[in-house]
Amino acid sequence: MKKIPWSKIIIYGLLLFLAVSVLIPLLNLLAMSLSDPKRVGELSGLGILPKGFSLINYEILLSHPLILKSIGNSLFITIVGTTLNLMLTTMTAYVLAKTEFVGKKVVIFFLIVIMVVDPSMITEYLLVKNLGLLDSYTSLILYRAISVYYLFILMRFFNEVPDSIIEAARIDGAGHFKIFTKIMLPLSKPAIATFALFYGIYHWNEYFRATIYLTDPNKWPLQVVLRQFVINQDNTTLLSGLSSESYDVVASLDLPSLQAGTIIISIIPLLLVYPLILKHFTKGALEGGVKD
């Protein structure tokens, strides 16, 4: 038998420890949310297997009007927002990366300024207020319609498409819009898919603008409801939303488990696309380029 060197054992051990320390807190919440509310007290803070098994937390959460509504709101914001992100980012990136026009240098200069200078959250808030967009999804969807970082990365990606293809299309009489839709977009599907994931996750996770722009709880996305419930410990909003016949159910509930369930629900869509992220990521479409 070959002797395993000590250094190997230490390296594998450290990495295993790291992976476990990422996973345990998450799996513990999952176990909590799936435990029988009467037995959840037995679950250790490091436990990853539910004590007993019950879906009662999820039944309650997924029949709760505020939570249901907020999931719908989040999906709406994510889908509409990402679609708009992709249309605007790709079109702008094409023009800036693949064409020459009068004024291009000025535009690029301003984009660099925008990348370096962040507006104050106060003036952004006042802008949204003055435009009459408070309490409307338009503000959430529009305020980050294009990420300058993603725009620059996509421009770099578009630059790698050979000019000769575009030249050939020009000679055949294709206009810029046609080249963009018929050549650039199909050629950059993997990159666009990656950006769709990143934009999508951004929208799904967004909570701060929604917190300050939306005052009507019926419009809140899931992250804001989650924050209200888990961070601000506002249990009354959640419990008062339950239908009256479930009062006896409420009495048997364990609030931390219910909170754990809400966290898990908000992570599920992310886990669904996570294999895609890893796949597209390893394809290297963004390797070395994306930070945040």
Partner: peptide, 18 residues
């Protein structure tokens, strides 16, 4: 190890508080 990067800070705070 990449996974937590994709969680929102609301979720991360919730996980750590617990």
């Amino acid at each position: 190890s990449y996974l937590p990067h994709f969680l929102s800070w609301v979720v991360i705070a919730g996980v750590w508080i617990s």
